[in-house]
Design a protein around this nucleic acid. Sequence first.
RNA 1: GGAGAGGUGACAGAGUGGUCGAAUGUGCGUGAUUGGAAAUCACGUGUACCCGCAAGGGUACCGGGGGUUCGAAUCCCCCCCUCUCCGCCA
Length: 423
Amino acid sequence: MLDPKLLRESPDLVRAAIAKKHLQVDVDAVLAIDASWRSLLQETESLRASQKTANTAMAALPKGSPEFIAKVAEMKAVSAKVKDHDARLKEIEDRFRQAMLSVPNLPHASVPEGRTPEENVVFSTHGDPASVSAHAVAHWEIPGFDRLFDFARGAKVTGAGFPFYVGDGARLVRALLQFFLEEDTRAGYVEVSPPIFVNAASATATGQLPDKEGQMYETTPDHLYAVPTAEVPLTNFFRDEILEESALPVLRCAYTPCFRREAGSYGKDVRGLNRLHQFDKVELLKWVHPSTSYVELDKLRDDAERMLRKLGLPYRVLLMCGGDLGFAQSKKYDLEVWSGGQKRWLEVSSCSNFEAFQARRAQIRFRSKETGKPELVHTLNGSGLAVPRVLAALLENNLQPDGRVRIPDALVPHFGKEYLSFA
RNA sequence: GGAGAGGUGACAGAGUGGUCGAAUGUGCGUGAUUGGAAAUCACGUGUACCCGCAAGGGUACCGGGGGUUCGAAUCCCCCCCUCUCCGCCA
């Protein structure tokens, strides 16, 4: 959520931001609600003040006295008025909150103009896609793939998009997770193992609710949500808390399975490991002082990139343009790994600075040393990294003529072998 | 899941219908005292929102939501959480 004061005091700034994101928001309507809310609030508060004054006077009066009885009669009318005002206030506050939720976060000045994904800027490219072996094929076409990555049985047991990982398949997933967590821990992130179900309040604070409930799996009868990303429980760790400024920045990482319904998706984009309903991911999260958040974003992105470099996978970094930025982000980089068999880039990480947008919604603050007052932190997150697409690229790019897959050196200590065999 | 007890400010803890944003203690801050410190003393010490250039003023908040009442931390209802015992169980 954006600061209502910013909207009130600098509506043009907000209008420009919305235009850069190519969104449609009726700012004037929001301002009108705000104005009527404020005038109603003032009326209500002065009525309440008169109630308080009367209460003090009545407390000093003998209970049955004529003056007391007269006061009760008088204040009954005020009470009714206050009730009426309260109801109207509540209604208008709901409308205001709804309206504010439709106002996106401001994009950072360094975010390029643009409307569509094609207008994202290629920020950097690492490794050479052409260096990938010529006989690479899409991972689902590798002979023996189905034995280690059993989609058919997963579909029988659960449904499409819930594969079994078997033998070396499972071992490779575990090796990747172990590698990611070790790298992230070395980079200063404290490992956390969070709940993988969250309540509605948490899902609301990070923006999954309202509107995106269709993307999550919901449990009956407890109405908990299976996490679509570790970002949700991790960010909510400090919800409604005030941190010490000296504790910042807080860096954490967490592995969780992630659950996404992905309603309506189909086609070759979702074949094999490209898109699943359940997948494993390590998420990186930072809570930082507002003055440092863009430096921290670059470091976060580099932390994610380093792992791809160590795995020897060609990748590129995209700087998202305004139109492809997303509602809550101020700035976002996507990391895409080269999939030699599919001959396309696969997104494996998305590193974003939310500035105070999430923190306001989740009420995560720090006590400023300078002023002694609480201020909103800036939150950042990024994948570090998502397993299935890294796995896909690894299987395709490292496929040997003999049908085995060479395990990158960095992964060998975790996998325990230099080659994965489908035989 | 069953029975019972309880959720009050940074923490501990009082407060069962009115003058309570809330006693007291601890902690924390500033000052006094001291060569310096401890101890002691004095004063101060929540969050959010609204009005105001400001000084300042106002309103709300005692786990969450609803209700009763002229008036609710206090009474009633629903929910959440914690603790103890029992049951079940990785």
